[in-house]
């Protein structure tokens, strides 16, 4: 499967250009936020600035959309735009959104409604945005995509799930292109959960969305070929390998964040440049301009999935 376009939104900003620029510059400082007005406890986070989510043109059919949906719509729209491909009317595009936790801030808002106003007095708008597939729905209407759409969730495996299904849809001829990506958000309750469950000195929670426009392998790639496999199939070390994720990349820890690693790997291949600070580098790969880099292979955090990106 070939990557034809990338769209990404994170604490590093919006679009692959600002993403690349941030990778060049190296680590940024997280923001410290208070997640509870009662305990006044704080946590460092890599959050997406609300200003980045303002785009009247791209979000014109998204009046009611929450942050979760806006991030996904912007990243997916950017991936399509980045490809430069004009989709003909008879060409089907599929949409696959994957998310580790879904729009939980909106779910919590709905719980607020139940607690504050009673069961019979809750907002239907908030309820309808609390379903995981609200983002896919907004992507389809914002980009007028009428092909198949699906939303998958499997915590850290969400993105590899999406890639696998995208590959199947394209091979099967269900669609010519697939917009596949991830979206996950932060919320005060999630920040509390992260504070309890994560080793914050190593893993600073982040949020964001990354999408790819994918085509069949036979179409010339704007970026590179991408595949993911169970780790047993991948060779672990051939010198050009990059072994595994860094503990805390520039965009923070995001459960569905393997999409961000894939985006940076694709940009490294395209720009022929290895960026430091986001993946644990093998000692023999240095952070400098490299014409020889043709393949990047790395494990996800669980060491169960190997992502393999190749430029021809």
């Amino acid at each position: 499967m070939n990557i034809q376009g990338i769209g990404t939104i994170s604490t590093l900003g919006r679009g692959s250009e600002s993403f690349t620029k941030a990778l060049h510059q190296g680590p940024v400082e997280p923001k410290i936020v208070e997640y509870s007005p009662v305990t006044k406890k704080t946590i460092p986070v890599f959050s997406v600035d609300d200003k980045v989510l303002k785009d009247k043109e791209a979000l014109k059919s998204c009046r009611r959309a929450d942050r979760f949906c806006k991030m996904a719509v912007l990243a997916a729209g950017d991936a399509l735009k980045d490809s430069g491909i004009e989709i003909a009317e008879d060409e089907k595009i599929g949409v696959i959104v994957s998310t580790a936790f879904g729009p939980h801030q909106t779910t919590f808002n709905f719980l607020d409604n139940i607690l504050d106003y009673g069961e019979a007095n809750v907002s239907p708008t908030i309820f309808s945005h609390s379903v995981h597939n609200a983002a896919a729905s907004y992507i389809a209407s914002a980009l007028n995509i009428q092909g198949p759409a699906s939303t998958l969730t499997d915590f850290c495996f969400s993105f590899s799930n999406a890639l696998q299904l995208a590959d199947a849809w394209i091979n099967q001829g269900r669609c010519k292109y697939v917009l596949a990506g991830t979206v996950d958000e932060l919320s005060p309750a999630m920040e509390y959960i992260c504070d309890q469950k994560l080793n914050i000195s190593e893993l600073v929670p982040g949020e964001g969305s990354t999408f790819f426009l994918l085509s069949a392998g036979k179409r010339k790639a704007k970026y590179c070929d991408i595949e993911c496999n169970q780790s047993s199939k991948g060779k672990e070390d051939d010198g050009k390998n990059i072994s595994s994720f860094n503990n805390c990349p520039a965009w923070g820890w995001i459960a569905s964040g393997s999409s961000f690693y894939c985006a940076s790997a694709a940009l490294m291949l395209k720009n022929k440049h290895i960026y430091q600070n986001f993946i644990e580098l093998k000692k023999d790969v240095s952070a400098e301009h490299s014409d020889n880099i043709k393949n990047i292979r790395f494990f996800d955090k669980t060491k169960k999935i190997v992502f393999n990106l190749t430029i021809s």
């Binding site: 509870s36 009662v38 939980h104 779910t107 309750a189």
Partner: peptide, 17 residues
């Protein structure tokens, strides 16, 4: 698939944990 436990959220809202 949803983080929708009302008791958990109510407790968090009221006590911060």
């Amino acid at each position: 698939s949803q983080l929708n436990n009302i008791e958990f959220y109510k407790e968090f809202r009221e006590t911060g944990q």
